[in-house]
Structure formats: C-alpha cells, structure tokens
C-alpha cells in the first residue's frame, strides 16, 4: 500500500495554543517573517507527524507567504514528511561509507522483513522505510536513524533485534 492512504488529509488545520506560542517564539527570532519558514515547518511536523497540504497552507498564512513557495521549500528538504509516516521512521544511510559497509544488503533485508519498499509504510502503520543520504555517522556504518535516534554498526541480526523491540 502507499503511505498516502494511511491518513486522510484534513481540509483545514489550526495551531493549538501551545504550538502557536512556539510559532510566535520562532517568528520573534527573525527580522522578517519569511526567515521563520523552516522552524515553523518543523513545528507543524511535530504537531501532526507529517505536513499535510492544509498544514502547508497554514504555514503560508502564518508567515504571509505564497502557498506555492512554502510547498516548494517543504519539498526541497527531504526531512519534511509530506506523506504520513509510520510510528517508526526507518532511515537507512546509503552514502559511501555505509554503502561500503553493506547498507544495500541491510536495506534489502529490511524490505524483505517488512514487506515494504523505499518510501512505503507497513499496513499496520508501524514502520516507514526510507533510503537517505549521509547521516554523518560514517565511523559507525552501516547506520540507520529511527525517528530521531541513531543505530550504528548494524547487521541483519542487530536490525531484527531492533525491530522486535519497536512496538
């Protein structure tokens, strides 16, 4: 299944009071509103887990920016999720050092184990698997980032153990 089908994208969204405070804090940091676009996109992603079109619109309105510009910025950065992701976002580094240390094999193992490919999410919404560029952990390759945590010097057995521990 494709990830886009996991969650219905809402038509409109609004900031919660807590998030609004964070947004105001981010806006206060810059002399022009436009500069706050990346922090505010992060706030949106933290709030909803991903950034649906309605959230992009909300960010555009919040910063008084054209909607297409916010869309362009959000798509430029791969770490913004423009589709829903599973509870555990498995991001496997495919760049040189990790690749030399067997990240391709590791990725194929994950694909077989989870039954999903790059950019896909398991039907139960547990895992999303993704190839990413260098995670800057070259000394510990092959490495994988799960949500915000790094796991280094991986092999198939370690990955299996890791997956078993993720609910």
């Amino acid at each position: 299944m494709i990830a886009g089908e996991v969650l219905e994208a809402p038509a409109t969204l609004a900031w919660s009071a807590a998030r609004r405070a964070e947004v105001d804090e981010a806006l206060a940091r810059y002399p022009i509103r436009r500069s706050a676009v990346l922090p505010v996109l992060w706030i949106a992603q933290r709030e909803w887990g991903w950034i649906p079109p309605a959230a992009l619109r909300l960010v555009a309105v919040t910063l008084d920016l054209p909607e297409p510009e916010v869309f362009g910025i959000a798509t430029f950065y791969t770490m913004f999720n423009l589709k829903p992701v599973g509870r555990h976002h498995l991001q496997v580094c495919m760049t040189l050092s990790c690749s030399l240390m067997g990240s391709d094999r590791l990725f194929r193992h994950l694909e077989r184990t989870l039954g999903i490919g790059h950019g896909e999410t398991t039907a139960d919404g547990r895992f999303t698997l993704r190839r990413v560029e260098c995670l800057a952990a070259c000394g510990g390759g092959p490495c994988m980032q799960v949500n915000f945590d790094y796991h280094e010097n991986l092999d198939e057995a370690k990955v299996d153990a890791l997956l078993a521990g993720l609910a």
Binding site: P53, L56, P68, T75, F76
Partner: peptide, 15 residues
Amino acid sequence: TAHQRGVWTEISSFD
C-alpha cells in the same frame, strides 16, 4: 514554484 531539488526539481503548483 520549484518542487524537490537536484535532478528531481520540477516546476508545479501548490500540491
């Protein structure tokens, strides 16, 4: 606007 980046850069509209 330009979507994505690098070789995958594509001109399109909002969403």
